[in-house]
């Protein structure tokens, strides 16, 4: 209903190009990620490296995915933590 009202009231003012641009932006997030399957793999490797400065994680169970809603895409990572480090190495500090 809200969507219907929005479409009736909103269309005239904003024009359809913003909708086009928004839909393109979302579809290209997925297109680009699936065209280079190495992208998420390479991101995983980098993530592990950074997180390992702070905690010990279960690298094998680490899961990184793009998940999409109606109007947004999120990077969802599930990273099982095994152990926190007592002292952490601040990469920026040294």
């Amino acid at each position: 209903m809200i969507d219907f009202l929005k479409s009736v009231l909103g269309k005239e003012k904003t024009g359809s190009k913003n909708l086009a641009k928004e839909r393109l932006r979302l579809v290209l997030v997925h297109d680009r990620a699936s065209v280079s399957p190495h992208l998420l793999e390479s991101l995983k490797v980098d993530l592990i490296q950074v997180i390992s400065n702070y905690m010990e994680i279960d690298e094998k169970a680490l899961d990184v995915q793009l998940s999409s809603d109606n109007d947004s895409v999120a990077l969802v990572a599930n990273i099982p933590v095994i152990k926190m480090k007592r002292t952490y190495q601040d990469a920026r500090a040294n």
Binding site: T14, G15, S16, K17, N18, A20, K21, L24, L28
Partner: peptide, 12 residues
């Protein structure tokens, strides 16, 4: 506002 403009497409 019913067609993407030049900047929109270069931006994307």
């Amino acid at each position: 506002g019913d067609m993407m403009n030049i900047e929109d497409m270069i931006d994307i």
